[in-house]
Design a protein around this nucleic acid. Structure first.
Lengths: 358, 358
DNA sequence: AACCGTTACTAAATCGATTTATTGGCGCAA
DNA sequence: TTGCGCCAATAAATCGATTTAGTAACGGTT
């Protein structure tokens, strides 16, 4: 990455960068008072108690008349507060990050904050680089969505789908045990015992935890997890292609199965396509259950049964938690883990078992 | 919207907001020179010519050793440059905005810029409010994605999917005439003459232009556009539900049709579902053609034929154009309209006509 | 009359980097 | 030997708001 405005570069300044209308000094001159007086009054500082209401009114009136807005940079420089957070996501254009981001943004803007986003496509160097860049931009905290990220740099961090306990980091995670149990118990109810799985990419934060949860639930429910019925997503395209490939591998392995539990909806969609191509009907021959409940899941053909993650709420929770930590003393202990609940959404890609196939 | 850090509020400052390691003064003290000298050298200012290489080396070494980073706020305040743009989008979590945003972000970060996003769900007051907020944050320009937005406030603006010519605004638009022609000629080739349409929501920037283009192309190709075969999307949910509803209306109108040209892929997906529910096969009974080519289009069942918009490239073009305008003198004329080309992506939701139905 | 405490303000320092103006010293030419 | 120019650097002003430390004027007490 080439940074064109780094420390040692020269650059023509953007010609006349839209200065804000009036500054405090000019406004003060107009009212015939000192900038100090105006600042105290406009910020309702306790030191403004001694100033008579009439003077205050004059100041307010002038501020209104000239539509005075304090300069953000000056104010931030002085106060060492930017009201800005940094957000790291793997990819903007996939449903997952966008959904979480949408929850983050809604809450932050309501609270008067903005945020800077950077997407890193799971490149560890980029993550590190962006983290430093955001730090230099004086963000007050970091939200890392599906992104490995230590605290460090003295910045409070909240990780969405984070699982590693770390000083300075609050993890927000789905209750994966519950998710796995919901899915497997449901499949079991439908009579499925030969279940195939698609695991997430190795770089995906949830992959390991989810898989462990599935294995435990399977053991508890006495469901066998056969190695040949486990495929793994490879590559970081956000398209269903990856699930399509994984499903083909599963079919090729030759071990019969009546249901598939996919890592996410996108890969489930790809898998359905692979099954159709191989002349298996979903759900008649193979039941498919996805994960996440992205917008399009309900409108697949067949509509996808899935484990819903409350992605938007997770984003909101991340924002809330981080803002909360910012107003606390940095030494007060912060939550290490916040868990949200999954939900089973039954649609039409799952059905009771008829006869084992494949 | 309640802004908690407005002009007249008091707030406990975030405790000890992670100050950057060393500042220029400290570094200067360490080297035994003045801050001025360091600044000149580190910025490679012409005034640093007279400083001997050896001194420069000492300065560089110290900067490196202490990992000195100039304070972004101080620098921006002085230079009146923030290297930050504002981006307005209707909704983060729908495929369209996220895709454009992804193109924007990739280009901006490469050029050393960041951006602040705000999503307004087509609320005109929010748009205005966010625009002011972004302005106060000293963004150097604005990218408005599918968002009505005048220039004003002396800020250069680039609109993605903008169509209204305005001083200070560069519009980036798809060649809708070509898009309409591609779709209709293709349907005509397949033998379709009874074609239904789903128009976009009234608040969508593309709706009018696209519809005009379709009418013109239809006239030119001698295709009748029957009022009863035109439905319109209502509401601003980003789910296929809206297309589902629109398609039901079309079916209810009782006018037979053999093909549907939808406003976007998401609504096309909903429409396919409605058709299936009404026992029409796609494409055997009704051909469906979407618009945009979102990720999941290829993995619908059937895979969706669609008119591809190069959304990511549009985002990139927007970013490029805006940065270009920033380095120019503000009086130099700027492009008013940049057009990008659509592409017909043939998949399996379209087929030659068999017999008219419905 | 000296002193205290309000009231109603203002000057100046501060945040941290950049930039303009200035200084002291040295070599060399008039 | 005065003076000009160059070198190597620095002091001070600047960006715009906030905040600390004062100050002048006035009324009331002892």
């Amino acid at each position: 990455m080439t940074s064109k405005n780094g420390n040692s570069s020269r650059q023509k300044p953007a010609a006349q960068p839209a200065r804000s209308s009036v500054n405090l000094k000019e406004l003060a001159a107009h009212v015939g008072l000192s900038p100090t007086a105006l600042s105290l009054v406009l910020n309702d500082s306790p030191a403004a108690n001694s100033i008579p209401q009439e003077t205050k009114n004059r100041i307010f009136a002038a501020a209104k008349q000239f539509n005075y807005r304090p300069n953000y940079l000056a104010r931030s420089l002085r106060a060492q507060r930017t009201f800005t957070l940094g957000v790291l996501v793997p990819e903007l254009s996939d449903g997952y990050s966008a959904m979480v981001l949408s929850g983050i943004e809604e809450h932050l803007l309501k609270e008067g904050y903005f945020y800077l986003v950077a997407s890193h496509r799971h490149d560890l160097d980029l993550i590190e680089q962006y983290r430093k860049l955001l730090y230099e931009r004086q963000v007050e905290g970091l939200i890392a969505v599906d992104t490995p990220c230590e605290a460090g740099l003295h910045l409070p961090v909240v990780r969405v789908s984070g699982h590693i306990e770390m000083e300075g980091v609050t993890n927000i995670a789905l209750d994966h045990d519950r998710a796995a149990t919901l899915a497997l118990e449901y499949l079991l109810e439908l009579g499925h015992r030969q279940i195939a799985f698609i695991k997430g990419q190795v770089f995906s934060s949830d992959t390991e935890v989810r898989w462990e949860a599935i294995r435990e639930a399977a053991t508890r429910l006495d469901i066998a997890v056969r190695p040949r019925l486990v495929a793994q997503l490879e590559g970081n395209s956000p398209s269903p292609e990856l699930g399509y490939i994984a499903a083909k591998e599963l079919l090729a392995a030759g071990e019969p199965f009546t249901a598939l539990f996919a890592f996410n909806d996108v890969s489930a969609i790809g898998a359905v396509r692979a099954f159709h191509e191989a002349n298996y009907q979903v759900p008649e021959d193979i039941s498919v259950i996805g994960f996440d409940d992205v917008y399009s899941a309900a409108f697949q053909n067949p509509p996808l049964t899935t484990i819903r993650q409350p992605l938007k709420e997770m984003g909101k929770l991340a924002a809330e938690t981080l803002l909360g930590r910012l107003t606390n003393n940095p030494d007060t202990p912060h939550p290490m883990l916040l868990t949200v609940k999954p939900e089973l959404i039954v649609r039409r890609s799952t059905a009771p078992i008829k006869t084992p196939v494949a």
